[in-house]
Amino acid sequence: MNWQSALDPHSANARHLADLFWFFTALCAAIWLLVVAALLRAIRHPGLAGEQDPPERQLRKSRIVGALTALTVLILVVFTAASFYTTRSFAWPDMNTLRIKVTGQQWWWQVEYRNHDASQVLTTANEIHIPVGRPVTLELHATDVIHSFWVPDLMGKQDLIPGRTNYLTLQADHAGVYRGQCAEFCGLEHARMAIWVFAQEPSAFEAWRRHALMPNTMPDGGAAAKGAYIFVHRQCASCHAINGSDAAGQTGPDLTHFGARATIAAGTLHNTAANLDRWLADPQAVKPGANMPKVDLSAPDRAALVAFLEGLK
């Protein structure tokens, strides 16, 4: 299981971080072993008579302590320099690459692909698709409280702070799925605020992007059509938008192409029909405190909604 770990790097940046970590760990472990060995030796060392060291012994001990202190300083200088050079190896944010605006909200992520051409601006939620092999600049915002974006396989974390914009550069080596989650305590459901990064070959990414930009086609019959009607005419559309339908709520995650997403409610549940039904039946039982209310829906209505939402591929 390696899909959220600082020790399982899948990008050049994360590898630099892991290398630095192992370098520190090796040296620190050696130091710790030496100190404990010295302690054990001191414990076993036979005591000397008297309460105070004779002067020549004091001098000898002072020299040893002095030398060890100098060694400590030296090691710390090496550590500081190694940290500094690792930091320098990271690219500065580049505004000419693919830019993705990530907005942290209680307790989900809004993702918006920036583009000068408004028709190419793409909004989704709780997952990010990136092309492999090239840097992607994340523009980090928050609208309510502080969150922190952390996908350890790809990069260290960076806070999302209301009133400020932070940047983080991601670059994946190879295609894969990487999980991350909010790392700054942000209230009730801080534990269930995950984000998934899908690194794809450039062609696959471009295909995904083109598809994601297109509105969903509305079903024209069967349970799914009933579900679409419920979605637009009941509480759902107050908060959620689906491109291609009349639903245009802005406060919850955009649900366009929801059926193609991996998870429900920011990584809380895998996106299956059964899980979606469970989620719709009582979101507060699954993610207590989330802003999605429990809507009174009959089982058939719920089934219709599930059919509709899962069909939004």
Partner: peptide, 21 residues
């Protein structure tokens, strides 16, 4: 001493970006 040494590790900015929080 173990805690102090991990303290040296978290003092490093790059390592801290992974282990912070």
């Amino acid at each position: 001493v173990a805690g102090g040494l991990t303290g040296v590790m978290v003092a490093s900015v790059p390592i801290d970006t992974q282990v912070h929080d």
